[in-house]
Design a protein around this nucleic acid. Structure first.
Length: 623
RNA sequence: GGGGACGUAGCUCAGUUGGUUAGAGCGCUGCCCUGUCACGGCAGAGGUCGCGGGUUCGAGCCCCGUCGUCCCCGCCA
């Protein structure tokens, strides 16, 4: 087959834009052959590009060579169709297509390029398995879903840039090749050729750079920044990911919140969804009590305190630890659980830390009718809602190095709350088609494509600020207090005097933003006084020398007139994932990696030549 | 590092208790077809049952190992 040259041809329209009002126009369409329907003397070609699909008709009776070219055309050939837009007869209008009222009658068809038969077709309904999709990513990305996802991503990024710029933020780039600062995640390392045995590290986040930009008087900084962490992957975790990173001088917590609410609502507006502001906020302790998790999904009812439903005798008879919370969780409209359901649900509950549950209210009613009635009353909801009671197992022997601190949740309490909170999420996922709370989100995501004004996102998208996280967590293994966030997070000023005497009670000026049960981002007001920073390091059991060797450059900078400052970073990939209705980050990243951090398309990582290794002064210990 | 699911035609999958020549749909190739739009009709090609070993008269199916993809735990300041 001889291919045609493009010559000086340019497209007059995209494959998605022609409408009935364009009838009669002479047009040039350029695109891929999505499908060919060959009726012999009449051939239909669906031409596809990023903007849509248009039907091109090739009629042998026209006596041109275009029909002959169309006979040779195959899926994914790149062609030019030159002809006239024609209104379709009423009986052949395709209401499923945006361009369904017209077709292009081609009097010339150019085969600009042929295409090997692809392992799967972008036009196919059934999508191929991910291994094939990732290897042939350029085919996969031609699918309308993927084009849509990356379009959403672009719109979100642009809306964020525009909003932050309008609020006085400068977009400033920070280095990729930087210094390894131990702790946190494992670093990706880049060997230095010039300095044998030394390495740069790829940034886990631009944290210290953005703080230094505040010290530098840049006032407001943002960056859509790539971050790298060498940890095992999940559906919502990639080894390289993108953060909307920002930092500002002289903020109150609320200042940061308003900025984030501003750009998030702009980003949602950009994809056709109204997201009401301000977002609700709760403290970490409230989040644990009400949802059993620090990233609450507000689309479902929260936990309720069921202790008042039981007498001390009840609890003893039920082998429930009276000193621990008794919690109710409710999933709407699940109905009666079968014996099999109950068995299947068992592994979804984490009983490792001495929690247990009762999922059979009927049985409770027989033994403890008054308590059961009270449970129903406290849990609320409808008769067909699933109610489950979670409590501490009185028979459990928990190695309790409990860190109870006045006014805060103890570790054992947290264990019960999180067992309930995680069970709530797992059951909600399992019975999603019964309660329907997640379908609302899917429906808004789907309707957004129709682009009919702003869709109401107030039910489908439920952001929430979680504040006042504990400053420290006790590490059972090292018997040391560890920072819950990074060690530059400021404690609450009024908690400062308890740094040593009662570290568990110290609250951090650290906040998370969650949406629909997914952590979107976290940030904090930072420490800006060197003495406070030194106290924190001491509270963490870190010597001055140790602190200096790890963060010396930063501690130096802190002493040269550091303004109060703070900021936040949000996962762009996760925001887009929610907006695309996707269940994996890989659906919203053009070239993602597999669960083993492999790029199947370029086949990375790979061994490198001995020559390269020698230059870098590196000797692998095994091949 | 640990647990689980999956791996059969290019793609999506079925494959009974271990038993003859491993099937279907889509796709592909050829021919036919002027109103299809997941076009239709006829004919055809296409298989290292992921890989290696074992049990057996006989393995897609059972056992052991291994590789890959996905999900989860650990991990992710």
């Amino acid at each position: 087959m001889t291919l045609d040259f493009l010559g000086n041809l340019t497209r007059t329209h995209t494959c998605g834009e022609l409408r009935a009002s364009d009838a009669g126009k002479s047009v040039v369409l350029l695109g891929w052959v999505n499908r060919r329907r060959d009726h012999g003397n009449l051939i239909f070609l669906d031409l596809r590009d990023r903007y849509g699909i248009s039907q091109v008709v090739l009629d042998k009776d026209l006596g041109t060579e275009a029909h002959g070219k169309a006979e040779q055309a195959r899926s994914e050939y790149v062609v030019a169709a030159i002809g006239k837009v024609r209104l379709r007869d009423a009986n052949v209008i395709n209401p499923k297509m945006d361009t369904g009222e017209i077709e292009v009658v081609a009097d010339q068809l150019l085969l600009l390029n042929d295409a090997k038969l692809a392992p799967f077709s972008p036009a196919e309904e059934a999508i191929a398995n991910e291994e094939v999709r990732l290897k042939y990513r350029y085919i996969d990305l031609r699918r309308p879903e993927m084009q849509h996802n990356l379009h959403v991503r672009h719109k979100v990024a642009m809306a964020v840039r525009q909003y932050l710029s309008s609020q006085g933020f400068y977009e400033i780039e920070t280095p990729f090749m930087t210094r390894s600062t131990p702790e946190g995640a494992r670093d990706y390392l880049v060997p230095s050729r010039v300095h044998p045995g030394e390495f740069y590290a790829l940034p886990q986040s631009p944290q210290l750079f953005k703080q230094i930009l505040m010290i530098s008087g840049m006032d407001r900084y943002f960056q859509i920044a790539r971050c790298f962490r060498d940890e095992d992957l999940r559906a919502d975790r990639q080894p390289e990911f993108t953060q909307i990173d920002l930092e500002m001088t002289f903020p109150q917590q609320e200042t940061v919140f308003r900025v984030v609410e501003g750009f998030l609502s702009e980003a949602f507006k950009a994809v056709g969804i109204h997201l009401p502001t301000p977002f609700p906020q709760i403290t970490y302790d409230e989040a644990m009590r009400n949802y059993g998790i620090d990233k609450p999904d507000l689309r479902l009812p929260g936990l309720v305190d069921l202790k008042p439903a039981f007498t001390a005798e009840n609890l003893a008879a039920l082998q429930i630890d009276a000193n621990l919370p008794v919690i109710g969780l409710r999933i709407p409209r699940v109905g009666e659980l079968s014996r099999k359901d109950r068995d299947d649900n068992k592994p979804l509950f984490d009983q490792r830390k001495g929690a247990k549950y009762i999922d059979d209210l009927k049985r409770l009613e027989k033994g403890f009718p008054e308590a059961a009635a009270k449970v129903r009353e406290l849990a609320g909801g409808e008769a067909d809602d699933l109610i489950i009671i979670v409590a501490g197992d009185a028979a459990a022997h928990i190695r309790a190095s409990d860190t109870k601190s006045e006014g805060r949740l103890s570790e054992r309490e947290i264990a019960i709350y999180s067992a309930a909170g995680n069970f709530r999420v797992e059951l909600a996922k399992k019975y999603a088609d019964r309660h329907g709370a997640f379908a609302v989100t899917d429906n808004v995501v789907a309707s957004e494509e129709r682009n009919t004004g702003l869709a109401d996102g107030s039910v489908a998208f439920r952001p929430i600020w979680v504040t006042d996280f504990p400053m420290f967590e006790y590490d059972e293994e090292t018997h040391k207090w560890m920072p819950s966030h990074h060690p530059f997070t400021s404690p609450h000023e009024e908690d400062m005097d308890r740094l040593v005497s009662d570290p568990a009670s110290v609250r951090a000026r650290y906040y998370d933003i969650a949406m629909n049960g997914l952590e979107l981002g976290s940030g904090s007001i930072r420490i800006h006084q060197q003495q406070v920073q030194a106290e924190i390091f001491r509270a963490l059991g870190m010597s001055d020398e140790e602190a200096k060797s790890r963060f010396g450059f930063f501690l130096d900078a802190l002493q040269y007139g550091t303004p109060p400052h703070g900021g936040i970073a949000l996962g762009l990939d996760r925001i887009v994932m929610i907006l695309a209705g996707a269940s994996s980050l890989r659906e919203v990243i053009a070239f993602p990696k597999t669960a083993k951090a492999i790029d199947l398309m370029v086949d990375a990582p790979t061994p490198v030549s001995d020559m390269q290794l020698r230059e870098l002064h590196i000797k692998p210990t095994k091949q």
